[in-house]
């Protein structure tokens, strides 16, 4: 790992100033935005909705607001929906992305065309995705049309009007949108595998499946972890597509945590409840991140150890 000792410039005030200049803008911005977080903290301990006078006169509620949120069954349902949405879409992205990366790993004619198309969804604005799929998903829309042609029967699925199907639809949209992300990461991972290992295993007569599961997969673990963690966290916060397409409906089938948070804060204007809720979400996310980071750091250390060249770094 790179290390300060490798650069032999004389330490001193100059260095300190230099270091702080590098960090300065970030600290400045964080300091600038800090009051917003403090205000949020204030709200989560004070009971305020917009109808109750000025916010600075709000009544101190202690942990009351948090208790409110924690006993709110709608919040827990939303959390459950978010977890289902995030896990399934992460899994879907991963399977699809990994499969694509495997198929695209070795070059063939037209490779770059395929590659260019496969990364397109990631470049598409989420709101655009929602509206485009709305055109496609009508009961009498092209997707049912194509399915009808392929399956030779009249396909009449209402993709957005029935709860389980609507959930499936938003999950598919998320997968469509973000598979390229996993695909790119996995492709980079695959191309970093030392080919010698593969050859050696082949010489030893290992089957393709064994080479994959016992040689390639373990080496890819850090990359896989990275893809899964990043994807899961981003999926937990997904809002534009779900909102533009379904606004939490049909019924409450797609009322995920971001949707419920949006409703609480921007439609019901229970700023305090929204603040408390968002802190709970934040804590939950941080727990996931910390867990993820632990895993990631362990993997990264392994990777660094494997790749450490003799003589470099320490």
């Amino acid at each position: 790992m790179a290390n300060a000792q490798t650069i032999a410039r004389k330490p001193g005030r100059g260095l300190l100033v230099f270091k702080w200049t590098l960090l300065g803008p970030l600290f400045g911005l964080l300091l600038f935005i800090l009051p917003a977080f403090l205000l949020q903290l204030y709200f989560s301990f004070h009971s305020w909705t917009i109808y109750l006078g000025s916010w600075w006169d709000a009544e101190f509620a202690g942990l009351g607001v948090f208790r409110d949120v924690l006993t709110d069954s709608r919040f827990w349902w939303a959390a459950l929906r978010s977890l289902i949405f995030a896990s399934l879409s992460t899994l879907g992205c991963f399977v699809a992305g990994f499969a694509l990366a495997m198929a695209m790993h070795r070059p063939f004619r037209g490779h770059s065309l395929f590659y260019a198309v496969f990364i397109l969804p990631m470049l598409t604005v989420p709101v655009v995705i929602a509206y485009t799929f709305e055109m496609l998903l009508f009961q009498r829309g092209p997707i049912n049309g194509i399915l009808s042609t392929i399956l030779m029967t009249n396909v009449n699925v209402t993709w957005l009007a029935q709860p389980p199907i609507a959930v499936f639809t938003v999950i598919m949209l998320e997968i469509w949108n973000w598979t390229p992300f996993v695909f790119i990461i996995m492709l980079a991972g695959l191309s970093s595998l030392p080919p010698e290992l593969d050859e050696a295993a082949q010489v030893l007569g290992a089957s393709r499946w064994r080479i994959f599961s016992e040689v390639q997969l373990p080496l890819l673990r850090p990359v896989i972890m990275l893809a899964l963690i990043l994807r899961f966290l981003e999926a937990m916060g997904e809002f534009p597509k779900t909102w533009a397409l379904l606004q939490g409906g049909p019924g409450s089938a797609t009322e995920t945590v971001p949707v419920y948070l949006f409703l609480t804060t921007w439609q019901y204007f229970h700023i305090s409840r929204g603040a408390a809720m968002s802190y709970l979400v934040l804590i939950f996310m941080i727990l996931i991140v910390l867990l993820g980071i632990r895993l990631l750091r362990r993997e990264k250390q392994t990777i660094d150890a494997i790749h450490a060249k003799p003589g470099a770094g320490e």
Partner: peptide
Amino acid sequence: LTGHIEFQDVLGKHIAEAYIGQ
């Protein structure tokens, strides 16, 4: 009433849930 949006959205949500059989 004051709080119209929430009164209405809560009602609307439950009616919609009943309509699709949740």
